[in-house]
């Protein structure tokens, strides 16, 4: 690892092992796996917007197995209540007390499937936990286990009977990504049964929850120059003054961009961030945080095209331009 010690090298090697284990079962999605793991290392949550059956649950299961994390999955439906997620207090007659029964949220990796199918009340209950890391039931706050990662999935826009997450709540997710359909070779492997939940049995745990916490600490130690902080701030500011964007990236997004850039540098065997790291994570971090204006929406301008143009219009820091 460039400019780092042996401990950091071993940390990155461990991270690579996790990715390799996950790749055993999720075929043809290396970019998605790296992006999801970078978000986990950055201490954030992941939103996956995609059609059913592309491997979202398999991805979550694979990560939980590779990192020996406690994993729960909830299929959200319109009748799921906040108590189903957070837990509830039940009166025990013999002890004359209320006893808290933990909800499904009490785990390390929580997969919230089709979060847009449930009511806004249940959505906000989950998102409150994501933000605060605490579950409050009957006035008593209890911390969720650490590490705590949420992988939420959302149906593509336009599906009937769904309530898409509002912008303020989408902001709580570190990245948004789409897995997409696998390529031809991967599809054949899946059909032959060499991928998917069956091959999750082949995944060996590489580390545990404590190991993940140590990795996260290593990621947070990655160095960013002042000029790159200015560069990220210029990018975020450009989203707030763009003729196609009504709602730009918030300061929470700036923090997410910083953390993801660090995680990306870490996975690329560096303990310092380069503009290329920012470029690689810019789209996944920002695309779900912005809202296009009416004119752009009506003419079907894509968010990705607007962000790509915005990124190319903001000049890179001078020192890095000369180096390139």
């Amino acid at each position: 690892m460039t400019g780092a010690g042996r401990a950091e090298e071993e940390a990155v090697f461990l991270a690579e092992r996790v990715i390799e284990e996950v790749q055993k079962t999720v075929k043809g999605k290396d970019d998605c796996i790296r992006a999801a793991f970078a978000a986990i290392l950055a201490g954030g949550h992941i939103l996956i917007e995609d059609v059913p059956g592309v491997g979202k649950t398999t991805l979550a299961l694979a990560f939980s197995k590779a990192m020996a994390l406690d994993n729960h999955r909830v299929q959200f439906t319109p009748d799921v209540l906040p108590a189903d997620i957070l837990g509830f207090s039940m009166y025990k007659k013999n002890t004359d007390t209320f006893v808290y029964h933990p909800g499904t949220i009490m785990c390390n990796l929580f997969l919230a499937d089709e979060i847009n199918r449930t009511s806004p009340k249940t959505q906000s209950a989950l998102l409150e936990v994501m933000e605060e890391g605490m579950v409050t039931v009957d006035g008593v706050s209890r911390p969720v286990p650490s590490p705590f990662i949420v992988m939420a999935t959302q149906n593509p826009k336009g599906s009937a009977g769904t309530q898409l997450l509002p912008e303020s709540q989408l902001d709580r997710f570190m990245i948004s990504m789409s897995m997409g359909y696998p390529d031809m070779e991967s599809e054949i492997e899946i059909a032959k049964g060499r991928a998917g939940s069956l091959s999750c049995e082949e995944i060996l745990p590489v580390m545990d929850a404590e190991g993940l916490e140590r990795l996260k600490a290593s990621v947070s130690d990655v160095y960013i120059q002042d000029v790159l902080y200015q560069y990220m701030a210029a990018l975020v500011n450009a989203t707030r003054n763009n003729p196609y964007i009504e709602l730009g990236v918030s300061p929470r997004g700036t923090i997410a961009l910083t953390r993801m850039a660090k995680a990306n540098a870490f996975l690329n065997y560096r303990n310092f961030v380069l503009p290329e790291d920012i470029e690689e994570v810019f789209l996944p971090v920002t695309k779900h945080r912005i809202l296009l204006n009416t004119k752009a929406r009506v003419t079907h301008v894509s968010t990705e095209a607007v962000l790509n143009k915005l990124f190319s219009d903001v000049p890179k820091p001078a020192a890095f331009r000369e180096r390139v």
Partner: peptide, 13 residues
């Protein structure tokens, strides 16, 4: 045309 809408007298790429 990556962005198919522009304001009047603004260049389109």
């Amino acid at each position: 045309i990556p962005i198919s809408m522009v304001q009047q007298e603004m260049p389109a790429e």
